[in-house]
């Protein structure tokens, strides 16, 4: 292990890190709004909608992210739906994100006191307005710390995309390692790069949690 290995190979790894960040951002950007929709329909007064949603979410949570990824990249083309490895990874991680964040957000929405919902109804506000102005803003706020924690997990899970040849950080490290046989130092550097993102993010999550605790 030497600093010169790092000096020679860090550009490839940095470009991989950038791909990891982009694919994570896209997955979260699609997955979290989808998660909110699922959370709302899992709380819906319409029974059928509620049960179907809860079933879909359970399947989504029960299926390992790696399996979802393989289905999107290798499975969908057999029914003539083909995405690049980048979009496959983003879509697969977005689906996993939607399933998990819907549970987190549902908890947040349910934490909004029913008395406030009732007060809004008593004021003549329609359900849609009550959700939009009262329940969602507060429910999402409560969910922010666990959502941030989940985002860190998805960033780490983006390394699974090395199995579909996406040149993200893990696969860059792997291919650089195998061409130089400097596995230890290259993978070590990759680990440090992941940590450089996840440790500050976890620290911010902790701060957000404490802020939340203070304001509630």
């Amino acid at each position: 292990m030497s600093l010169s290995d790092w000096a020679e190979n860090y550009p490839a790894l940095l470009s991989g890190l950038w791909v990891s960040i982009r694919v994570t951002a896209l997955a979260l950007g699609i997955g979290m709004p989808l998660g909110l929709l699922l959370a709302l329909s899992a709380n819906s007064p319409k029974k059928v909608l509620r049960y179907v949603t809860i079933g879909v979410v359970e399947i989504g949570r029960g299926t390992p992210a790696l399996v979802v990824l393989q289905i999107v990249y290798f499975g969908l083309p057999t029914v003539d739906v083909t995405f690049s490895s980048f979009f496959s990874a983003a879509i697969a991680l977005a689906l996993t994100t939607a399933a998990y964040t819907s549970e987190i957000l549902r908890g947040g929405l349910q934490a909004v006191p029913s008395g406030e919902v009732e007060a809004a109804s008593a004021l003549g506000m329609v359900n849609r307005d009550t959700l939009r102005f009262i329940v969602i803003p507060q429910g999402v706020r409560v969910a922010i710390p666990p959502l941030m924690g989940f985002a860190v997990l998805i960033f780490q899970a983006s390394s699974l995309a090395y199995t579909i040849a996406l040149p993200e950080l893990m696969s860059q490290a792997y291919s650089t390692g195998s061409s130089t046989f400097r596995y230890m130092s290259i993978l070590g550097l990759a680990g440090l790069m992941y940590a450089a993102i996840t440790i500050p993010a976890s620290w911010l999550t902790g701060r957000a949690e404490r802020r939340m605790a203070r304001h509630l």
Binding site: E116, E118, A119, P137
Partner: peptide, 20 residues
């Protein structure tokens, strides 16, 4: 329903203001 509730204002024991 909205028309009916509009004419009947309600005040609760626990205030139920919107804290955000």
């Amino acid at each position: 329903l909205v028309a009916h509730r509009r004419v009947a204002g309600m005040v609760f024991q626990s205030f139920n203001l919107f804290p955000h």
